[in-house]
Nucleic acid binder design. Sequence first.
RNA 1: GGCCCCAUCGUCUAAUGGUUAGGACGCUGCCCUUUCAAGGCGGAAAUCCGGGUUCGAUUCCCGGUAGGGUCACCA
Length: 474
Amino acid sequence: MVRTRFAPSPTGFLHVGGLRTALYNYLFAKQNGGKFVLRIEDTDRERYVEGGVENIIKSLAWSGIKFDEGPFEQSKRLDIYHRHVEQLIKEDHAYYCFCSAERLENLRQKQKDKKIPTGYDGLCRDIDPKEAGQRVQAGERHVIRMKMPVSGETVFNDLIRGEVRFKNELVDDQVLIKSDGYPTYHLAVVVDDHEMKITHIIRGEEWISSVPKHIQLYNFFGWDIPQMAHLPLLLNPDKSKLSKRQGDVSVEDYRQKGYLPEALVNFVAFLGWNPGTDKEFFSLKELVKEFDITKAGRAGAVFNVDKLDWYNKEYIKKLSDKELAKIAEPWFNANKEYSIENKELIERAVGLERERITTLSELPGALKFVFVLPDYPSDLLVWKKSNRQEVAKILPELAKLLNTFSVQAWNMGKLEQGIGEWLAEKGYSVGAALWPMRVALSGQQNSPGPFEIAEVLGKAESLARLDKAIAKII
RNA sequence: GGCCCCAUCGUCUAAUGGUUAGGACGCUGCCCUUUCAAGGCGGAAAUCCGGGUUCGAUUCCCGGUAGGGUCACCA
């Protein structure tokens, strides 16, 4: 049975790169009828952020990615790691190291100065186990390191990249247990992936160089090695690793800005993968069906917000008035211009701006003119090919005509038809009448069309706004 | 710097040992149009460089170069 996992560290919010990793793991598990596990890699107490786990879970839930098991927290599994590392010590695959941080720092510096590869020099590697045990007993500060083989090669087959090989002599004796008793990532990840029966490890490319350490650990324990797939990194527009400095990186940022989860997920799924067809829109369900990890790209992918914006617009366009009003509610609530009583009007009005906004957060501002007529200069009422005199003549006539519409007939279709006939009959140009009408109703240079606004506003409000315009222009 | 990954329009990518190198975003022209959007129809825009294999290379191989990752008692 396929089992995958997403294993973030709770250092804040869910990164969009993390979202993609979680998504791919989820998709792969689901398309194989397997399980997706959430594990929290919280073995670094210094970087622990209060609420970090909750934030990650919330962002995953918002994105529609459901995990089947977990969250398992590594900080609550210390005994398991210790049990395993003891085995390694017993079997001479790991050893106590008493080197101080200062010594290691000096060592590194010297290696750098001499331009030789940095890494632990193995000073404690050959301390007699008995002596080491005694020093530990005596309370001497120590870490536990793995005994990396000094010769040979470690080879593995990446699902995305094919065969990758590393010379063992160049791989460090990785610390397994820190002096505070917590395991490092490298020990914990191997032990947990095995304990949790993970069959496929899908994670970011930044991990690829630590794979040989992990493989040696699997070998020491005599465990089967999971399949691995290392995903290309997400990049800034300048091709550097995606960072906060150059824009938003957390799922939460995008949620707050008014991106739809469907859009973010669809967009992120296409960063490093695509179906090989012209199909651009994929629901989570469709992704489960069509995703193929072996077709994932190998080169880093720029996180291009323009494309995300396009996806978001497209997904917003698919929403009904009701859905859009509902989903945008938080942004209306956050805007003090709007009160709860507006709810019904909001639902009627959202259609006006649906095709004009990029994110949900723009909606309250875009629709404000429906609720409060903006102040505008009278010149705005004059169409570029018209003049004040003409507007002053047409607008009152138009108001008179509109007044003849019954409230029942006050809808887009009827208005358009009626005004159209009237225009033809009078011989007025369309722009000369419709531009001022639209400005009168919206108070804005750019807005939705006059008929749709009129319908949303209703007869009384529409005529009131027309009267205001007439007063301005005469 | 060592090691590792990697390279198709500006961006995300598709495809093939022989193609007009396809799509999408963005940009742009035209149409529609009272404005802004939306929509329709077009356009510009790419195989990093050098060798080799081959009748033929963008594709396969080697080298270079660019970019990225990693080299912690962080993940």
